[in-house]
Amino acid sequence: MRIAVVDGQGGGIGKHIVEKLRKLLPEGTEILALGTNALATAQMLKAGANEGASGENAIIFNASRVDLIVGPVGIIVPHAMAGELTPRIAEAIAQSPAPKLLLPLLRGKCELVGIRPEPLPHLIDELVNRVKEIIAASGEKTSP
Rank of each mutant, 00 (worst) to 15 (best):
M1V: 07
R2C: 00
I3F: 07
I3N: 04
A4D: 02
A4N: 01
V5Q: 07
V5Y: 04
V6P: 00
D7P: 08
D7V: 06
G8Q: 02
G12S: 14
G12Q: 13
I13G: 01
G14H: 02
I17Y: 02
L21T: 09
L21Y: 08
R22K: 14
K23M: 12
L24M: 10
P26T: 00
P26H: 14
P26C: 06
E27L: 10
E27Q: 12
T29Y: 04
T29K: 04
T29R: 06
T29F: 04
T29W: 03
I31T: 00
L32K: 02
A33I: 08
A33R: 09
A33P: 10
L34R: 05
N37T: 01
A38N: 08
A38Q: 11
A40Q: 03
T41E: 15
T41G: 05
A42S: 15
M44H: 11
K46A: 14
A49M: 11
N50C: 05
E51C: 00
A53G: 15
A53I: 09
A53C: 13
S54I: 07
A58D: 14
A58K: 12
I60L: 09
N62H: 15
R65M: 11
R65F: 08
R65A: 12
R65D: 12
V66Y: 02
D67N: 14
L68Q: 06
G71T: 06
P72E: 13
P72D: 10
P72I: 02
I76E: 02
V77I: 15
P78N: 07
H79R: 13
A80D: 08
M81P: 00
T86C: 05
P87F: 08
P87R: 09
I89H: 01
A90G: 07
A90E: 00
A92S: 13
I93A: 00
I93C: 01
Q95F: 10
S96Y: 08
P97Q: 08
P99S: 12
P99L: 14
K100E: 10
K100T: 11
K100Y: 12
L101H: 11
L101Q: 10
L101Y: 14
L102A: 09
L102G: 06
L105R: 12
G108H: 04
G108P: 03
C110Q: 12
E111H: 13
L112V: 15
L112I: 15
V113C: 01
G114R: 09
H122T: 13
I124S: 06
I124M: 05
D125T: 13
D125P: 00
E126R: 15
E126Q: 15
V128M: 06
V128E: 08
V128H: 05
V128I: 09
K132H: 01
K132F: 01
I134V: 14
I135E: 07
A136S: 12
S138N: 11
G139Y: 08
G139V: 07
G139Q: 09
T142E: 11
T142A: 02
T142W: 02
P144V: 07
P144E: 11
P144I: 05
